[in-house]
Design a protein around this nucleic acid. Sequence first.
DNA 1: CTGTTAGCGCTTTCAT
DNA 2: ATGAAAGCGCTAACAG
Lengths: 339, 339
Amino acid sequence: MADSSRSPGPSTLMDVARQAGVSPSTVSRILNGTAKVSDDKRQAVLKAIEAMNFAPNQMAQGLKKGRSMTIGIVVQDISSPFFDETLRGVDDGLKGTGFASVIVSGHWNADEEAERIRLLLARKVDGIILLSGRMADDTVLNFSTQRPIVSTGRALKTRTALGFKMDNEYGAYLAVHHLIELGHRHIAFISGPSNNADADERLAGYKRALQEASLPVDENLIVEGNYHEASGMLAMNRLFDTHQHFTAVFAANDLSAYGARLALYRKGIRVPDDISLVGFDDLPGSSYTTPPLTTIRQPLYDIGRIATQALLRIINGEAACGEVPPLELIVRETTRRVR
Amino acid sequence: MADSSRSPGPSTLMDVARQAGVSPSTVSRILNGTAKVSDDKRQAVLKAIEAMNFAPNQMAQGLKKGRSMTIGIVVQDISSPFFDETLRGVDDGLKGTGFASVIVSGHWNADEEAERIRLLLARKVDGIILLSGRMADDTVLNFSTQRPIVSTGRALKTRTALGFKMDNEYGAYLAVHHLIELGHRHIAFISGPSNNADADERLAGYKRALQEASLPVDENLIVEGNYHEASGMLAMNRLFDTHQHFTAVFAANDLSAYGARLALYRKGIRVPDDISLVGFDDLPGSSYTTPPLTTIRQPLYDIGRIATQALLRIINGEAACGEVPPLELIVRETTRRVR
DNA sequence: CTGTTAGCGCTTTCAT
DNA sequence: ATGAAAGCGCTAACAG
């Protein structure tokens, strides 16, 4: 009991009403454009609002209207360029809508993810965007009965749940096909974590491209990573330690490609002169690696923006819709024709 | 399925009270541990909560208690590794506190920043963390009468406002001093944007190191960048186009160092064999550039965590405090002794 | 220990 | 066109 009575603590709608000599309902009507109000009263209220620097208490508004004007975003890692680029799209998608977002992290863990979603629900978010979730589809569907959810990496499509799924198999195929066209015959693959659907699909795409070109799938050329830089470096070193022969490497994501690149540098192996390298994601930084990375572009920003717009549409009772651009090969400077 | 014969929407504390045959206050007491409750009633309530899958409506709680359990974070760019690493610290600082954060972006613009802060205030956040704000200190102080604010890049210290300021001048001095010790005599500087306090300080540190070594400050070796990769690349090219002589480059931040690195690569100039390069920030990616970047480490993660803890302390009426580790030189592989 | 009673600040019938 | 009154879901006196 230390702080009460003093400076003009946040003024309330009631204060404004009093000062303007009208009823609270009139102030509310002006704020929301809910009904006609005579011009003189309107002026008086506007003046009072200005003078008192009044802004409606959103918690009170939310409680009354049953809308918090907030959406929840679940990422897995708040400091990964992968998620941050998507977040930028979300941010832009929210621009001018009056919605704000609270971002929580699931840390790649299904249980933590569910826990966080429960928190968001308790905070009465009006909808949820789930990025790269680990939860089962059924769990998502279940949560979506409480609040609409749009998720990446799933093929959902109900009245309150929508999924956007990229064709990872195809993307990986594109990458390896590019290498094969360049004349590469021995292509190593640094995979993603084995318990991951995206990672499995990328592996499948790698294999299909090989098989389609009647090239053998050599299990010794496939080494597991975990999507982080360090794992890419380790994987690369493993390849060398076991004396594999290859002229190109496809890393399941850009981050592990960065790690692989460093391992190569350490060995004094030139890229792309000695070895070609392809990543997956096209993170913002990949245009500035040395040399700039050839990769499969995921439209991260668009995914964020489009997912947000779709969610807003569901929240407004409209039909969910939206389409994201497909994956595409971006040829930069880490790949070249084999001599 | 659990809920079939009840009002639509999430169950309320009132529902729980009814189901357990107690008064709402009793439920509230159990939820908040506000008073002793007999064991049988407690069990009944707990069972009802479980059965109805009840979670208190945070907007109602907030309205009543005058605490939203939310803090606002103002960043300038949601997809910059600089901010995201700090955000990770914030996230960890919030862990287990019951607070969530809503993140907004000021986009390096003082007006937008103030606007966003007003939004956060309307949302009744319990406190604000301002990262690299552009607003005047007075404006911050003014806002801080409504809600506590902790900000980076300022030396504030009042009962409701706290600033953490890194010694940029010193950091830059460290970088250039390192280069000088390595025998470099002609050191170019790619600065930050000219209207930026941090940037000015880093420039000052660059000059001081030079002067201290009785080396001339050659204005032709100073070219303005804007902290982004592209500007680093452009700046580097400008240096070449005007035929400057230098053996080392100090970039005012890592991102522009990345750009400079690419420009060097394009010219076929080796790093560090031909030219040494130093950055500033030590972004997470800087350990994986080719070669790994020598840089001045800012404890981004710690700043986020410590700022958060300080804010929480102020919110709880305790005295603001906290100290962040100083800047330090991280020698990696982009610098070497001049031949 | 526990129920009753007021609101927190705002919106929204329902009258006038 | 405008005011009075009734809550949204929860907590906090204030009685028992």
